[in-house]
Amino acid sequence: MTAIRPGSPPGPALATGGFRHHDVLDLDDFALDEIELVFHTADGMKDVLGRDIKKAPALRGKSVVTLFYEASTRTRMSFELAGKALSADVLNLTASASSVTKGESLVDTVKTIEAMGVDVIVIRHSSSGAPYLAARVVEPAVINAGDGWHAHPTQALLDMYTIRERFGSLDGLKIAIVGDILHSRVARSNVWGLAKVGAAVTLCGPPTLLPSQWGGVTDTNGHQDGLPPPRITFDLEDALDGADVVMALRLQQERQEGGLLPSLGEYIARYQITPERLGWAKPGALLMHPGPVNEGVELSSDVVRGVQSVIDRQVASGLAVRMALLYLIAGGPQ
């Protein structure tokens, strides 16, 4: 039914409760219908990106600042292009984490950005939780573009969107996430997001690169304090057996220096995804990686460019998903 209300222009009513977030900090508090709304909106954005004129005026007059305390080319570019495709003004601010030693710098910086009338602050920071601090002290919407080991919600959404693109639905899919789980914000956000959409997650890596505790207890107020407990295995064949999706994580080179791994060689020998090992997963299983790939470490070069690899699709999805989030979030809470 199309109800045309006086003074309010017509438009299709939303089937869901709408997008209820003022900020996008992590997926732990996202409801399933919100995730689906992001995906649905991203479908529309993909449309825009498929045209000759890859630009729509939806965010004309809105401004987006990307505030990156850590180097990142692809995530920043993705946000910048996403903002521009919706006609927002996008400003990039790089803060060198080494020059920022006192805590108030982040607070001061975001307050300054707020004073300039910016609508959305996209923040990447090496401290887990830094975007929460920013969101607490300023009014503009804050999008977490990766904080420490904690969360990378837009990456998880684009990963899920990529999987959905191929399978139609995520419900019941088996997803194996392989590698350095302990230090991975991508893994944490995916564990939350995939749990919400009904996928079954298996985490796999050497014990030193896995958190020692998951799940946790529910406190007296009914809050569960930990991550949704996934299946954990140290055995790659066990993890990949019957998997619909294999997601490899980037291995930071400094992990072996920290005594977490004897050598890169031992990691490669046990955990590198090769064409043969990818065969342990279901035929046609997707191979994913958040990038940038250390070719020859997490993945062998031939699987990176193999037919099962959707790594480039992830990048394309990222643009659509980030456009969707900017569109849904700009202009304040709903």
């Binding site: 732990d28 887990s128 939780g129 904080d147 420490g148 080991w149 904690h150 969360a151 230090h183 914000r185 944490r188 958190p211 020692s212 505790q213 998951w214 799940g215 946790g216 207890v217 304090d225 930990g226 991550l227």
Partner: peptide, 15 residues
């Protein structure tokens, strides 16, 4: 404290 909350929040825990 190193435990379920530090695992969730991605911060270095003190066992």
């Amino acid at each position: 404290h190193e435990g379920s909350v530090s695992a969730r929040l991605g911060v270095r825990g003190w066992p």
